[in-house]
Design a protein around this nucleic acid. Structure first.
Length: 647
DNA sequence: CTAATCATGAGGTTAAGG
DNA sequence: CCTTAACCTCATGATTAG
């Protein structure tokens, strides 16, 4: 068994993730599993068991190199409590782990000093300002704050589950990194190992692979490790600092988060209640700009404008770092857990997201946020305009549509549909209600309410007098702006899944329409997380020729859908498939850019699994095992910008 | 083995009401 | 200004059918 406490925690946490029922019964054989196919990627179900198993072996085999610093002097509980306390103070977990790894956990003051000095070291101008504001100013009373925390939270010292949760959150990142580490470097010589050692260290510190890669892409390969840490930490801190600044409100943030994640210790929440509201008001008064803790969603959700609505705003000034080429376009769900869009915005050059509901473009709602550096003037929708109401989109339903169902548009197209049993239950309810009432008029109010609720919840439409049914894949294709039968050939579930995850073509095309005049001779596209090819379809329907398209998509089903469409529509350009975003390395980008002369558009929406409200199990935010691939989007985009010399 | 089927709320916002 | 209620959500995991 691994003698390194931190490794043991890691392995135990990993074990618990996969085999929660048998946690605590780890055998000593965890290193014997030899899984070598690593597919942490987009939408498909992950074979967690395989990966975690491999993680055990990896963490064992790297023992003494990347992880050895963590466990030498402290017991795990001691380490955990220190780690926990500093995290509660508002320092990024990764930074705390790094500092403790460097100087040990004996001297609390030394840790604090080092943490503070790390904050000083930052060199990014606007972030430096924020750091000074957030971490330097309270220095005088920081220690008392800390001791206060230390006392009040002493109960957490033994809160093993709390630590385990934090460790567990780190595990996928660690696993990913370590496995990819072996995969990438096993054939490399010492020199290249040296070169990418910073990547090793960064991820070892708990940063995600995407963040680490992004930092290296942004700062360069040869810069000191501290600079990379500063870059990432600045992103973390400024994100957090943007939400709440002083230590007091920061604790509130952390406790809120903890409260939401799981039921935490009660005394901690009690403490939080005392701190609840006063700090926010204070901050609001003394801050010059409004509190951007939560990006407020526009109402109506029309972004910078939609066709046939009074335009809102067609002018904006982009930050210098955001200006292309290349143009880029990023998409994700609008209603994420708190703070997610703030983080995304911060990574994507501080561009304000454009929140748009596709109900202004088609017959179904679809609230999405888009971050892009495209011009805003002279947008035009693709013709013909798609149907905007249910009756126009699905004429067959009008015959059966009861007058008491007031819906004119559908709710968001999801990846799952209502069950046949639900259709049956509704049929029974309606038939019983009708037979009870003497005339054949209307069901009771109670039944009506039940039916309406279920219909809204599952997006059912009327296909008979007492029958509602979910949409067919073909119907969804039309509503989403794809050619009918676009996904034909895939299994039914795959079609629903692919369409439920896709762009609404008319909405995206409206935003992309400004490219038509800019690139009359066609564009080169880097399409990340392509899915069923919404970006490609949108560009095609806009009449923008695609010279070269690099499509990154893991699902083979989706790759085939896009390939078939490419051939069906007689595309003249060159379509290159890449299955894994991790395969999109700087070298690859340089190769493509050298070959094509650069990308004109980088487009994609990163996985929303861990952000979407419909997720009842793993709505873990941007660090979730799927959604953290956003950092790869940024890494790749920034790599393209860097290579093309516009960074 | 793949594919289909079904049950499983929380979390957050918006709107209404007082 | 506050509270309360209504509303909606690019899903996951277990189970069954083929």
């Amino acid at each position: 068994m691994d003698s390194n406490p931190f490794n043991r925690l890691l392995s135990a946490a990993a074990y618990r993730v996969v085999y929660p029922e048998s946690f605590g019964q780890m055998d000593d054989n965890s290193s014997s599993v030899g899984s070598d196919t690593i597919d942490w990627n987009t939408d498909d179900e992950l074979e967690i068991a395989n990966n975690i198993s491999s993680s055990s072996s990896v963490s064992m085999s790297t023992n003494g190199t990347v992880l050895s610093e963590f466990g030498e002097s402290s017991s795990s509980s001691n380490y955990s409590s220190k780690l926990h306390h500093f995290i509660k103070m508002g320092f990024p977990q990764a930074m705390v782990a790094k500092v403790i790894a460097e100087i040990g956990d004996h001297d609390i003051d030394a840790i604090l000093d080092t943490l503070l000095s790390y904050c000083y070291l930052d060199e990014t101008p606007h972030q430096e300002q924020e750091l000074n504001d957030s971490f330097v100013k309270p220095e005088s009373n920081f220690e008392s704050d800390f001791s206060d925390l230390d006392d009040s939270c002493s109960d957490d010292q033994s809160n093993y589950s709390s630590l385990m949760q934090r460790i567990t959150e780190m595990v996928p990142v660690q696993v990913y990194y370590m496995t990819s580490f072996l995969h990438v470097f096993q054939e490399d010589n010492n020199e290249s190992f040296e070169k990418d050692d910073s990547l090793v260290c960064l991820i070892d510190m708990g940063y995600s692979h995407g963040e680490a890669s992004a930092a290296i892409a942004r700062c360069g390969k040869d810069v000191p490790l501290s600079e990379l840490v500063d870059f990432i930490s600045a992103a973390h801190i400024s994100k957090q600092a943007d939400a709440e600044f002083d230590a007091l409100t920061y604790k509130e943030e952390v406790s809120k988060k903890d409260k939401k994640r799981k039921s935490q210790k009660g005394n901690f929440l009690m403490k939080k209640k005392n701190l609840e509201k006063k700090p926010k008001r204070k901050r609001n008064n003394e801050d010059e700009d409004e509190d951007e803790d939560v990006l407020h969603l526009p109402n109506p959700m029309i972004g910078f404008g939609v066709p046939h609505e009074p335009f809102r705003n067609v002018h904006r000034t982009l930050p210098d770092a955001a200006i292309g080429p290349p143009y880029f376009y990023y998409e994700n769900v609008a209603l994420t857990p708190k703070g997610v869009w703030n983080t995304i915005k911060r990574f994507l050059y501080e561009i304000e997201p454009e929140f748009v509901d596709s109900k202004f473009f088609c017959a179904a709602a679809r609230k999405r946020g888009y971050i892009h550096n495209l011009p805003l003037t002279n947008r035009s929708p693709i013709q013909p305009l798609p149907p905007r109401t249910i009756f126009e989109a699905l004429p067959g339903t009008k015959k059966w549509w009861p007058s008491w169902d007031k819906r004119e548009q559908l709710n968001c197209i999801l990846t799952c549909i209502g069950s046949a049993q639900l259709t049956d239950r509704i049929r029974l309810a309606l038939e019983n209600s009708n037979s009870n009432s003497k005339s054949e008029c209307e069901p009771s109010e109670q039944v009506k309410k039940f039916v309406i609720n279920q219909c809204k919840k599952w997006n059912m439409v009327w296909t008979g007098k007492t029958k509602v049914a979910p949409l067919e894949p073909d119907e969804i294709e039309l509503i989403m702006g794809y050619p009918i039968y676009h996904t034909r050939g895939a299994s039914r579930a795959e079609r629903y899944k692919g369409l439920g995850n896709a762009f609404q073509v008319d909405t995206v095309a409206y935003h992309l329409s400004v490219l038509k005049n800019l690139y009359p001779h066609g564009i080169n596209v880097l399409s990340l997380f392509s899915g069923i090819g919404g970006a490609e379809v949108a560009l095609h329907r806009l009449g923008i020729p695609m010279k070269n398209v690099v499509s990154v998509e893991k699902s083979v089903v989706c790759q085939n859908i896009l390939q078939d469409w490419w051939e069906q529509t007689n595309q003249k350009g060159n379509l290159i498939h890449v299955s894994d975003v991790e395969d999109v390395t700087v070298e690859k980008l340089e190769e493509w850019i050298g070959c094509f002369g650069g990308f004109d558009l980088v487009i994609g929406g990163s996985p929303c699994n861990n952000l979407a409200g419909g997720n009842r199990k793993t709505r873990d935010g941007l660090e979730g095992e799927h959604s953290w691939l956003f950092y790869d989007y940024f890494r790749i985009l920034d790599g393209v910008k860097s290579i093309m010399g516009t960074n």
